Computed example of a mutant assay.
Amino acid sequence: MARSDDGKRNFALRDTSGSESSVFSGRTPRQAALKAARRLDPADGEAAADREDISLREKGTKKVHHYEGWAWVEEAPDDKPDWMPQRITKANVSKKGIEHLEEI
C-alpha cells in the first residue's frame, strides 16, 4: 500500500466497466469519496440531491471501496472569507462496502 509522507493514500475513481478516470487522495477512503462526491452534479438543497454510486480503488491494493454519494449547493456561512463564493457545493457519502478484486 503506497502512502505518502503525510499519510495520504491515493484512490482511483472506477466506473461500472472497471476503467479508472480520476485519482483522489485522502488519509481515509471516506475523505477521498467526499472529494469525488463534490464533483457530482449538485442539487439545490440536500433533500433534493440524487444519490449516485462512487467506487474507489485504493492504489497499490485490490480493495474497492463502494459509497453512495450526493452533492448540493447552499449559501456560504456569514463569516466566510472574502475569496469564497456566496453559494458553495457541499457533499456527503455513505459507505456501502468493500470489494476485493481478483486482479487489477
Rank of each mutant, 00 (worst) to 15 (best):
D41T: 13
H100A: 09
A48H: 01
D6M: 14
P77T: 07
W70G: 04
S22R: 00
D53W: 04
Q86P: 09
F11V: 06
P81D: 13
D79T: 10
R3P: 00
K96A: 08
R39P: 10
D53Y: 10
M84S: 05
A43H: 06
D82N: 13
S17A: 06
D41K: 10
I98L: 03
H100D: 10
T61E: 13
G97W: 11
A91P: 01
I54A: 01
A37F: 07
K35D: 08
K35M: 09
G18S: 03
I98V: 14
A48Y: 00
L34K: 01
N10I: 10
S21V: 00
D6S: 14
R39Q: 11
A37M: 02
E75S: 07
R38F: 02
Y67C: 00
N10E: 15
H100V: 15
G18N: 12
P77C: 09
R51K: 12
M1F: 04
V64Q: 04
K95L: 11
R57V: 02
A37S: 00
G7F: 12
K90P: 07
K90Q: 14
K90Y: 00
V64I: 08
S19W: 05
D78H: 11
T89Q: 08
K62P: 09
D79G: 04
R30S: 15
D41E: 15
R57P: 11
T16C: 01
A49P: 00
K95C: 13
E68D: 13
G26E: 08
Y67M: 00
E74Y: 04
E103M: 09
D78I: 05
P85Q: 08
K62C: 04
P85N: 04
I98D: 12
D44R: 15
I98E: 12
H66G: 05
P42D: 04
L34H: 05
F11A: 07
G26T: 05
M1C: 12
M1K: 09
M84L: 14
D78Q: 06
H100L: 14
R27E: 15
R14D: 07
E46T: 12
W72K: 12
P81K: 12
R3V: 07
S94G: 14
G69P: 09
W70E: 08
K62H: 14
L56A: 03
N92Y: 08
V73P: 13
P85D: 01
G7M: 11
V93M: 06
W70H: 09
K62S: 08
